[in-house]
């Protein structure tokens, strides 16, 4: 059992959990993820690590309350526990002085990007950050990100704050030279970023979170086509060369269980939390 030390609502339906997990905290590095199981009947959900504190023995992660599991997770309070957490999983990010790095984050992945930006900045990079969300209400960590970035751009899908969409990057990329781009967020966003950086041949690393079951190399459901080769998101990734990823296939694979996910969430809504109480 893993005790929840802190719960923070960062934006509507976006929560941050700090959890006591000393063995994971000691080992975690930027770019890695954990598998969370809320109870005996729960699924194994991969979530990117957004922070760790070895001294305190804690890790933090941020999630969007969209499906049954994440909504159940969102109901847990400080002092309550999560049934099982396995990690850290996946390969850590490559962190060194690349020079000038463009970091693009969207949605809940803004949280692990903050960790990444901090590590890149400490390694001596000049970090230009773009953070985006669907609407301005879903943006969080703006001040923290600004403090760590050489420059911060904000974008929303509807233009309610900052730029509308990512098209503004065309100009930025035309004017400035970047040595590396790191992108974390929804797959369509990653795809767009890669389209934008490709003409400038900027090495672009994307974090992929395909559907996973075990998350440690057993099931192969997280397979992605990278440069025509079959790779496993969990053991070969989660970071890949974005210019080689077959995003169209990835998007289709991520939607494989959409009907079941909807059914599961709907039944849960109708039947309450399933614990028999309340």
């Amino acid at each position: 059992m893993y005790e929840i030390l802190r719960v923070e609502e960062l934006a509507p339906k976006i929560k941050l959990f700090e959890v006591y997990a000393p063995e994971i905290a000691e080992k975690a590095r930027p770019g890695q993820f954990i598998i969370v199981i809320i109870n005996e009947k729960g699924e194994r959900v991969p979530l990117t690590i957004a922070g760790y504190d070895a001294k305190k023995g804690s890790i933090t992660f941020v999630f969007n309350e969209v499906g049954k599991t994440t909504r159940q997770l969102g109901l847990l309070k400080k002092g309550e526990s999560i049934w099982n957490i396995t990690g850290p999983l996946g390969n850590p990010s490559e962190i060194r002085n690349f020079g000038k790095v463009l970091c693009v984050a969207g949605g809940v992945m803004i949280a692990p990007m903050l960790l990444q930006v901090k590590a890149l900045q400490e390694a001596g990079n000049t970090v230009v950050t773009v953070m985006g969300a669907r609407i301005k209400e879903l943006l969080f960590f703006k001040d923290e990100m600004r403090a760590l970035s050489h420059r911060l751009y904000v974008a929303t899908d509807d233009g309610s704050e900052g730029f509308k969409g990512l098209d503004f990057l065309k100009e930025v990329l035309a004017e400035e030279k970047f040595d590396r781009c790191v992108a974390m967020g929804p797959v369509p966003m990653l795809q767009r970023v890669c389209e934008l950086t490709k003409p400038y041949k900027i090495p672009t690393v994307v974090t992929l979170m395909p559907i996973m079951v075990d998350g440690m190399g057993m099931c192969g459901v997280c397979r992605v086509s990278v440069g025509g080769q079959m790779k496993f998101g969990c053991v070969d990734g989660p970071e890949f060369d974005g210019h080689l990823v077959d995003f169209d296939q990835l998007i289709k694979r991520q939607r494989m269980y959409l009907p079941e996910e909807r059914l599961s969430a709907l039944l849960w809504e109708l039947g309450g939390c399933g614990c028999g109480g309340e």
Binding site: V213, M218, Q249, R253, M256, E260
Partner: peptide, 30 residues
Amino acid sequence: ENLGGIYSANEFLIRVNLMKAYAFPEYDTP
């Protein structure tokens, strides 16, 4: 081989045996 509906035996059996997907939605794994 990366089309939907194509499983490795490991994935299929892990879903069914370990995660008890045959009892979905009582169990969460579909």
